[in-house]
């Protein structure tokens, strides 16, 4: 990074500087490739803004206003980031990485606006334009936030319960022959049933729908995490266990400090699969039972044919789920640092 900052200060870069001036960017000289990267967001946002203003002449005023402000702020932050990046190498790295992706997202929104509000290729009210969705998001923000919060609570409770039980059962099945003999058939028969298929039974059995939803999510998480924990534990290299034994290790050490660390890569695969299963089960459980959360919100708004709000909820869901996924990746990177260089990272 530092080297390229230095490069920008060298007079050799005069030609690029001219190019940059010609395009009207008020930034210090930069290699050509980076100029293109820098321009991506402002250009995409400007195009989207022009398209929007052109398309939305006959749209309701508040929608037009908020979407214009939205695109305008992207344009502004794009320009600011482009200008400010020579001061912060962190910002520059971020821009270099995220610039094209953000620009692509803005262009996609623009394309969406053209085929919906612009050319009206898709039937209303099922396919509102981006401006409508943004307006729904703003109008219903309190309820959406509340729903997201409720979903988060349900998800975390179910996921934590499922993982906790699965780690215990997985380690037992992977380590003890008795547990494997009895546990494996159960796992093989019960595990593959989609957790959502248990919903009718859970609703009968449990006093509250929230309670049954937590149980169902936990069940969905339990299967993959148990399976991969058990296989990770039983695949521990025998020589690691031999070494530990000759060092005086007893069974607790062998399980907790040899088999479990050795199984960690496998356990994390289970945790990721379990998280995916948890998202699915959460939304289904909220749709059919629980009277709150994002899944419930989507079903409810669909009943009223308020598709703008349905999409708004989907946008929130996407942000919400991907944030949680990213957090799990961060945890994995922390726990499995020792794998860096051992596997393709």
């Amino acid at each position: 990074m530092n080297t390229s900052v230095q490069e920008t200060n060298e007079p050799v870069q005069m030609a690029e500087e001219k190019t940059a001036r010609a395009v009207g960017i008020n930034s210090p000289a930069a290699p050509r490739a980076r100029v293109r990267t820098l321009l991506a967001i402002p250009v995409a946002a400007s195009v989207a803004l022009v398209v929007h203003l052109f398309v939305s002449k006959n749209q309701p005023a508040p929608e037009t206003y908020s979407y214009s402000v939205f695109l305008g702020s992207i344009l502004l932050s794009g320009v600011l980031a482009a200008a400010g990046q020579s001061f912060s190498s962190h910002l520059m790295r971020w821009m270099r990485h995220m610039g094209p992706i953000i620009a692509a997202a803005v262009s996609l929104a623009c394309f969406w606006e053209v085929i919906t509000s612009g050319l009206r290729l898709l039937p209303l009210p099922y396919f509102p334009g981006p401006a409508g969705v943004l307006q729904s998001l703003i109008d219903d923000r309190a309820l959406l936030l509340d729903s997201a919060w409720n979903s988060l609570k349900l998800l975390l409770a179910g996921y934590a319960l499922g993982v906790a039980v699965a780690l215990v059962t997985g380690v037992c099945i992977g380590w003890f022959n008795q547990a494997r003999y009895w546990g494996m058939p159960l796992l093989k028969v019960v595990g593959p049933i989609p957790a959502t298929a248990w919903i009718p039974l859970a609703m009968v059995l449990s006093p509250s729908p929230r309670f049954s939803a937590i149980g169902i999510i936990a069940l969905a998480v339990w299967f993959p995490v148990t399976m991969l924990t058990a296989s990770g534990i039983s695949n521990t290299r025998a020589s690691y266990l031999d070494v530990a034994r000759t060092l005086g290790a007893r069974e607790p050490y062998l399980v907790l400090r040899v088999a479990i660390p050795a199984a960690m890569p496998s356990i994390f695969i289970g945790l990721f699969m379990g998280l995916g299963a948890a998202f699915l089960t959460l939304v289904v459980a909220e749709t059919v039972g629980v009277k709150s959360g994002l899944g419930w919100y989507v079903a409810w708004k669909q009943g009223w044919a308020e598709y703008g709000k349905v999409y708004a909820a989907l946008v929130i869901m996407a942000a919400f789920f991907s944030t949680i996924m990213t957090l799990l990746f961060k945890v994995r990177d922390r726990v499995l640092v020792w794998q860096k260089g051992v596997i393709k990272w």
């Binding site: 290299r237 020589s239 690691y240 031999d242 070494v243 034994r245 000759t246 060092l247 005086g248 040899v258 660390p261 050795a262 960690m264 020792w338 794998q339 051992v342």
Partner: peptide
Amino acid sequence: PSAERGLVFQDPNLFPWL
């Protein structure tokens, strides 16, 4: 096995996570 009898294996067999 016991800690009284230490064995250095032919392969180092270090714990890669430590």
